[in-house]
């Protein structure tokens, strides 16, 4: 249901302290790429202390752990008593999932698909019982594959991950946009939304308002959804025509989901 997943470094007190003021629907506290090897312990300690005493009540919190076996183990030990939504597993494929399972931790997992191996195993990964969602990691994938980032080159990985996630009924989260220009971000997010993504990662707090706005249902979509659900409730029927279109169960379910999301994020027109 979240629209924006904001990465914040786990070793920067100011960012941790302000994690709930950036208006992100979810934050991913980073122990991995944003934290140098020498600062990993500091990130674990700070995050542990902060979340123990100041867990923001209305924010989904995830922690991106390291994929290296020893670092992963230390990360998970630091997190074991914390009430977080789950962990984010980088370089996610069948091998890293096995590594995670071996740790016997029982966090829900969002996997980052950012390697060729991860991509060709994405359908299997999506079906894994501990997996709640998938993030496309385009920057690492770009590096591994040698492509240049564009809407064309991202089309296939975005589509494949999305189909895998939808088939498994889990979240599909679009890759971060790494430049800080707002129009580029809008364009990138619109491309993802057009494919069917409902959320996107942010790598800077200033990206959050744009992402939240772009992944918010429009007032027109909401009005249409309200009309569908109203007729469904009035007729108690799962199949009917409305404004020249045939409506059936998937359309009714989608309308209900859209209304739910609109309620949560305060779209005008929701009672």
């Amino acid at each position: 249901m979240a629209r924006s997943y904001l990465f914040i470094p786990g070793n920067v007190p100011r960012m941790l302290q302000n994690m709930d003021v950036f208006d992100a629907d979810a934050v991913i506290i980073d122990f991995e790429d944003a934290v140098s090897l020498t600062d990993k312990d500091e990130a674990r300690h700070l995050t542990q202390l902060f979340l123990r005493d100041h867990l923001p009540p209305s924010l989904d919190i995830y922690v991106r752990i390291n994929s290296d076996a020893q670092l992963m183990k230390d990360d998970l030990i630091a997190l074991e008593t914390l009430d977080i939504q789950g962990i984010v597993l980088p370089k996610c494929d069948q091998d890293t999932l096995k590594e995670y399972e071996a740790s016997q931790a029982n966090f829900r997992v969002i996997g980052i698909i950012e390697t060729p191996q991860g991509m060709i195993e994405v359908e299997k990964t999506a079906m894994h019982p501990c997996i709640d969602g998938l993030i496309l990691g385009a920057e690492d994938l770009k590096k591994e594959m040698g492509f240049t980032r564009s809407s064309q080159t991202l089309y296939y990985p975005r589509q494949r991950l999305l189909y895998a996630a939808k088939a498994a009924n889990i979240k599909a989260i679009d890759t971060p946009f790494t430049h800080l220009d707002e129009s580029g971000l809008s364009e990138d997010a619109c491309e993802a939304a057009a494919l069917g993504y409902e959320s996107k990662c942010a790598i800077h707090p200033n990206q959050v308002p744009t992402i939240n706005q772009l992944f918010l249902p429009s007032e027109a979509d909401l009005m249409a959804a309200l009309k569908i659900v109203k007729k469904h409730e009035q007729t108690n029927s799962m199949r009917f025509s409305l404004d020249g279109k045939m409506i059936d169960k998937p359309v009714i379910d989608a309308a209900k989901q859209l209304i739910e999301k609109s309620k949560r994020y305060g779209v005008k027109g929701v009672l």
Binding site: N18, V21, F22, D23, H204, P205, N206, P209
Partner: peptide
């Protein structure tokens, strides 16, 4: 400002 806290206050 480009500071996210500053921008939040501005919004």
């Amino acid at each position: 400002t480009r500071d996210p806290v500053g921008l939040k206050i501005a919004r």
